[in-house]
Design a protein around this nucleic acid. Structure first.
Lengths: 159, 159
DNA sequence: GCCATGTGATTGACACGTCAATCATGATGA
DNA sequence: TCATCATGATTGACGTGTCAATCACATGGC
């Protein structure tokens, strides 16, 4: 069942290797797109919105320092800042000055933001089950976990 | 080694399932980002540019109908149109009117475009080997191929 | 106290992607 | 022929993401 001819470090890629790579990256991208579309239909939230609101919903008092939020969801700060601007315009989050450090900002989810998040979460998790978990056998799911761990080891540390 | 408790259709996601899902989607995203950054450094091309030039480089006479190109690389037409506009401005491709159908456009890679593509290709494939293929055992690579096939079966057909 | 330096966060410019609308041309049928 | 509809492609508006620059405030050394 193994199509590779063993380790081939530094060699030209076989078409099998190339196709597997492309398949991996394209399938992940398509999954993101489809899930994102459903999320949008169900709740009007984007994947980014969902991630931000998820983090805030799990935080003490539904509020978090902007930098902590960025670290928590693994985003660059400028990305978060732009995104929060858009979410604020839509009334999903609010910014407050930070008491301890006047440079800082506290982000908090609005009632409307939490409501949209709750509306999103069940269908979103259902879609993850349907398109990802249900497509895989338990052994394949374990394989995904292993593979992800192996790939992460080679990846340079995040921002 | 199996962490799931067997098929759990319709149930709430376990934290293992959720973490595996998140790991999958985030790792793929990070791989794209890192590969994209290297590509940019090595050649000044984005991943999109690379895909377009790859398709053109393999086409008869380095030219292709816009719609054929879109289908070939799996992009929506408007996306391709915008992207070609940016590439044309940078001198990487050129648009010509199509002889057989005056509605159509022929896209062709310029000398400069092909030169950038050649500059990009070796380091790009090397990076794919380094960050993806070399990180996985042959059995894991086969597992990726299987998993990708299983996921694709559940995915709605493309644009 | 004051300045240099670091840190939290925002901004502007620009590339990328999607959606809906548009436009021109080809094909079809009364 | 001409009205209609389909098709190839582009456009505009807008959300998203990155990079480099900026701004305000904190902090530590003198």
């Amino acid at each position: 069942m193994t199509h590779t001819t063993g380790g081939r470090p530094g060699r030209r890629l076989t078409s099998y290797e190339l196709a597997t790579w492309r398949g991996f990256i394209e399938t992940a991208e398509q999954l993101r797109t489809v899930l994102g579309g459903r999320l949008r239909e169900d709740s009007g939230l984007s994947e980014g919105d969902y991630g931000v609101l998820l983090a805030l919903s799990e935080a003490e008092g539904r509020r978090m320092r902007s930098s902590a939020l960025a670290t928590h969801i693994g985003w660059e700060r400028s990305r978060l800042s732009h995104h929060l601007g858009r979410m604020e315009r839509r009334g999903l989050v609010a910014r407050r000055e930070c008491a301890e450090d006047s440079r800082g900002a506290e982000i908090l989810a609005t009632t409307e933001g939490m409501s949209a998040f709750r509306r999103a979460t069940v269908p979103h998790l259902r879609a993850v089950r349907e398109l990802f978990l249900d497509a895989l056998t338990p052994a394949q799911l374990d394989a995904v976990a292993e593979i992800v761990a192996a790939l992460r080891d080679r990846l340079p540390p995040g921002p």
